[in-house]
Simulated assay, not measured.
Amino acid sequence: MNPGKILVAQSQGIYIVKFLGDVRLNLCSTLDQYTDQMFADEFFKTVIIDLTETDCIDSTCLGQLAKISILYKEKYGQLPTIVSTRDDVNRILTSMGFDQVFYIVNELVSKVEYLEELPEQTVSEEQMKKQVLQAHKLLMDMNENNRDAFQDLVKSLEEN
């Protein structure tokens, strides 16, 4: 598998966040900090999540995407967009209920050429634990299947 990367671009308040390769826990702090910056931008209008080159995405990163959806819906009353062309990734998104909290489309209207890689953020073990817990709680709140799938993990994280 290709090591994961997050590429970003922004123009006139439109943000593109592109996941490449195997996107896992080590990139969640990076994504969380970028999400906070994005929503703090007074010119922020919309965000498009591009998963067209994502080989694999773990549940903690999915929880971070759920956070983006929640913040976007609170701010604008609408759903953000995910672009995904891979059947395996689409199955994960659908099984986790992402089709209810994102518009999922199979092509990007135009090609983005000026993406920059987000530098990976280093956080303490305690901060990482909090982010994993928050991400999985968000996933659990999306639907009953997710609640069943992650309740033991969340309980374990809360107890430790």
Results as ranks from 00 to 15, higher is better:
I49W: 09
F19V: 01
S124C: 15
Q78C: 05
N90T: 01
A149F: 03
Q100W: 09
L65I: 05
K129R: 07
K130T: 04
T30A: 02
D87K: 03
E158G: 15
Q100T: 10
L108W: 14
L133M: 08
P119W: 02
Q10N: 15
E107N: 13
I6K: 04
Q131K: 03
D55R: 00
T122E: 05
D148T: 04
V89N: 07
E125C: 03
C28G: 10
T122M: 02
L65A: 02
L138I: 00
G97F: 06
G21C: 05
E53T: 07
E113F: 03
L62N: 12
D50Y: 07
Y103F: 03
L138N: 07
G77P: 12
M140Y: 05
S59G: 08
V154H: 04
K5P: 00
M96A: 15
V47Q: 15
L25F: 07
V89C: 00
L71M: 11
S11V: 13
K18W: 08
Q33M: 09
D41M: 06
E113Y: 03
F43N: 04
M140R: 06
V132Q: 15
L115S: 13
L71K: 08
Q100R: 07
I14F: 11
V47M: 14
A40V: 00
R86I: 01
I70P: 00
E42Q: 13
E126L: 09
Q37D: 10
Q134S: 12
C28A: 09
N2E: 06
P3N: 12
I57S: 04
V89L: 10
K67P: 00
V89S: 02
V83W: 05
L7N: 10
A135W: 06
N2H: 06
D55V: 01
Y15I: 02
N160I: 04
T60W: 02
Y15C: 02
A135R: 11
Q121D: 14
